[in-house]
Design a protein around this nucleic acid. Structure first.
Lengths: 350, 350
DNA sequence: TTGTACGCGTTATCAA
DNA sequence: TTGATAACGCGTACAA
């Protein structure tokens, strides 16, 4: 077992100084052709690679991006990571992942672990618990220490950082307008409690679309599901709530769900109640994931382009990391990029 | 913007030496109660945290695990990551993720990037292309340099390292025997080409189950799909192949698919051909993911317990990393842990 | 053309 | 009880 070879070892072996080796490897003109050859040959033979950690310490940058997301078993988030990783690697960065598991404490701890030199900046989406508690000191502190953050999807406007979001309101409007255009008169929404910003915004889009078309929203058609029910363990309760919704509003002919799971579950309940899709009931969901594509019938969705979000977030972060320190104007100017949503029509609508 | 505070700055500020500060913070008895208090108060005020990179350089370990997987937008792999992250964090490690995107080159490059000091060891699942080319030098080289690897799911027996696998053969037998027990006489398998080791093993389990029950396998019932068709862009072709299978073998009454997508697609084709599930056709799939749970009908599956695989892999790796260097017996002894599969019965079987 | 010295932030050892 | 020094691996300014 040959340990990783260092400059020092090469130097000793070849009986030259460390800096000579270093220079020779970087093709410095200071070094004679002769020794350069010799050193490079030796280095190649022993498969020399500079130690990243030493470089990080020296350069005071790690070329690593920290990602903090609520969970990874989630089509949207893993798409975002794919996008981040793609751009990061292309630009010479690595990606280190922390999961908050929707918990405030884990989010804080994870950020602390990574902020102590392990990474150059964060890309993150905020945990539900953090959003509820509205305690954002760990973000501001991180930023104050000079470590940039890019937030995506679940963001806080007040925090000074770059952001990548989808236009949830517009996307929701798009969906609801599609239902209206298809002749739906009584459109229900299945959404989350308001402290989930995206849920709130999508609800807002729903309401705006109705108002724009002179359809007065009815509170009985707005189902705000407790997000505990999002967990796989509470599908039954979710079903019951939706069944209740359908039964007490027999005239529902359109459903807009703020995520795939709600939509798929709604379709399941509809089937149980013998509501034909899309004839008697049309369904549109936010978030274009695997479920939508492969459900029966397949779901019309508002796609958020998760990968594009990740790519954009990574570009924003790396751009900032590689800003000239002199450019103070740029440093103080934060961008909020909106990634356009897209309506993908499938079988659940006419 | 206050930069991260270092020992040096604290020392200067308090007019003591760096080593005094260091010791005071680690509660060394060498330091007087007085200065200890003073230093700790100051450190707390300025929110001092030791720099990870410096520690890594000094200790020659990073407390970071490198994960290389083919893709992350995949229920199984993200479950595994969840498991790894869980154990890693609990044991004080971070997790850095590289995606091979099923490409040999990206796998090699990613490993090289990380192996230069960024991490202490790898947990990985091998890219398809690597399996095809059967070029494993990057694994052996990494191991020879003293960096341990734990492989999961897609593994190579010949490589000396710990491994975590599911018993694909047994799992497949379980599934096929369930179909046989339910009265199926003509069971088809939809699998991958043989170079995908898990596909091959699951096929073997299928064959063994048939033979154990004196049912002679028919080659016409074995559909080996080109894995190009696994991509979302080629669903049509996949459907056609499966439709062809069903049409030329009208007596098929059971299908065992080696992954969810094949199974869901098979069900879709079955519906098109008016084959009732589970009355006329029963379907079982390997890999328990979101699709299985929410498809119509929901799928009976062989669950691989991805999270458990991740947890075990992380434990194996960290155990090895924290082995006493003296224990050579342990060092040379590699373990292969088999995570039991479990048949989860849902609506697609009787 | 080559080598010395320094610093990145930390800890361990040894000297004062 | 405190401080100076070396070392982890690297690159570079400067000296030889």
């Amino acid at each position: 077992m040959k340990r990783k070879v260092t400059l020092k070892q090469i130097a000793k072996e070849l009986d030259v100084s460390i800096s000579t080796v270093s220079k020779a490897l970087r093709n410095s003109v200071e070094i004679s052709e002769d020794t350069r050859q010799k050193v490079q040959a030796f280095a190649k033979l022993y498969n020399y690679r500079p130690n990243n950690i030493a470089l990080s310490l020296k350069n005071r940058k790690t070329k690593t991006i920290g990602i903090i997301i609520p969970e990874i078993v989630h089509h949207f988030f893993s798409k975002v990571i794919t996008g981040i990783e793609l751009v990061a690697n292309k630009r010479g960065y690595n990606v280190i992942v922390g999961l908050s598991n929707e918990s405030f404490d884990k989010e804080v701890i994870n950020m602390q672990m990574l902020a102590n030199g392990s990474i150059d900046g964060f890309i993150l989406s905020i945990a539900k618990e953090t959003l509820q508690q509205q305690d954002y000191h760990h973000f501001t502190e991180t930023i104050n220490q000079g470590m940039p953050i890019v937030m995506f999807d679940r963001v806080i406007n007040e925090i000074p950082c770059d952001k990548v979001i989808v236009d949830d309101i517009k996307g929701a409007k798009l969906a609801v307008e599609k239902l209206i255009g298809n002749g739906c008169k009584n459109i229900a929404i299945i959404t989350t409690k308001d402290y989930i910003s995206v849920g709130k915004l999508r609800t807002q889009g729903y309401l705006e679309a109705l108002e724009d078309h002179k359809m007065s929203p009815k509170s009985s058609l707005i189902l705000k599901v407790d997000d505990k029910l999002l967990s796989e363990n509470h599908l039954d309760e979710l079903e019951k709530e939706i069944e209740q919704l359908f039964k007490s509003n027999k005239n529902i002919d359109g459903v807009f769900a703020v995520n795939e799971l709600y939509a798929v579950t709604a379709m399941k309940v509809a089937r149980k109640l013998d509501l034909e899709i899309p004839e008697a009931l049309q369904v549109i969901s936010f978030t274009d994931g695997v479920l939508s594509k492969h459900s029966t019938p397949s779901l019309t969705t508002v796609s958020q382009h998760g990968q594009k979000i990740g790519e954009k977030a990574a570009d924003l972060l790396i751009n900032r990391l590689e800003l000239d320190d002199t450019d103070e104007a740029e440093e103080d100017h934060y961008e909020t990029v909106v990634i356009e949503t897209e309506l993908i029509e499938r079988e659940s609508t006419k």
